[in-house]
Amino acid sequence: MAAGTVTNPGPKVNRIGLPVIEYRGSKTTLCAGCGHNAISERIIDALYEMGVQPERVMKLSGIGCSSKSPAYFLSRAHSFNSVHGRMPSVATGALLANKTMMGLGVSGDGDTASIGIGQFVHLMRRNLPLIYIIEDNGVYGLTKGQFSATADIGSKLKTGVVNDLPAIDTCSLAIQLGATFVGRSFSGDKKQLLTMLKAAMAHKGTVMLDVISPCVTFNDHEGSTRSYKYMQDHEEPIGEVGFVPSFEEIDVEYEAGSSFDVEMHDGSRLRLKKLPENYDPTDRAVAVKTLMEAHEKNEILTGVFYIDTQKPAFTDLLNLVDEPLALLPQERTRPGKQVLDEVMAKLK
């Protein structure tokens, strides 16, 4: 069935001959209207459009409504729903075991910014090739609506409780710590999110995407800063995100100046247009400063803030053999008898 040839008239297929249905998952059990569902849809679209072979993907997640969502896309890929806040370590182990796989991690704002902040921080600094998506609703959905650490100060719960602690900005944090592709989007912004996900799939290194994803059950009311309404009023794209995958012809026309054209690892092109003047997405300090300033103005900035295609990925730093460690035959993992004899002789 994999990459099979298609006979007319069949369903529309992608470049590896698969219809979009092959990228779907089980039926969602999340609330109708939950932002997380929209993100799953965009992930399906991105995988389909990029022509990713489903079996070449590993889906990883922690615990939360968000972390359940890998069940709702790409059933043909292995998936690991781990423990709360610890997906980064599981992903690290899995990707070191098989570095030839695409790693797709889904987390929540609670899963990442509270219980999992330690692992998150260290994942970012290792630059493990992994797409790390935070489905960010500002609350703990699964435990029924307590504030998370990404909730904005002054934001109000349905019960009237007001958050009096400042939010952790996972994007600034990721940029400072060494992630090499950092952006924010909104589950309701189909075009931008899809483009960013596709670009993420062409990047080699840690991609950190914070996707604002309203929780219709616990955080979509007046006074919330993670509601659909609030996002419609306050989303401020930092620029336009364009993406040309490696398998599509690259059009030559591209105006320098306020635009940025980045060649990705696989030859794809990420095109950041209409950026503010002097905005250099390869300059960390500029990126962090811009994020902080937007925050002061109560704007939720979206788009790709930072990109670095030069920094070596963790798998490169470790200088691993080309084949997956998991699949090495015994001849390559168990040294011969002469090695043991040599060691024993030294110990006599």
Binding site: R86, S89, T92, G93, A94, A97, N98, A326
Partner: peptide, 22 residues
């Protein structure tokens, strides 16, 4: 070889790798 941030991460990596066949 990975010097992990703590033992939670150390065992998480071990199990992730074991799952993936290493």
């Amino acid at each position: 070889v990975v010097q992990a941030e703590d033992e939670l991460a150390a065992i998480g990596m071990v199990l992730g790798a074991g799952w993936a066949g290493a």
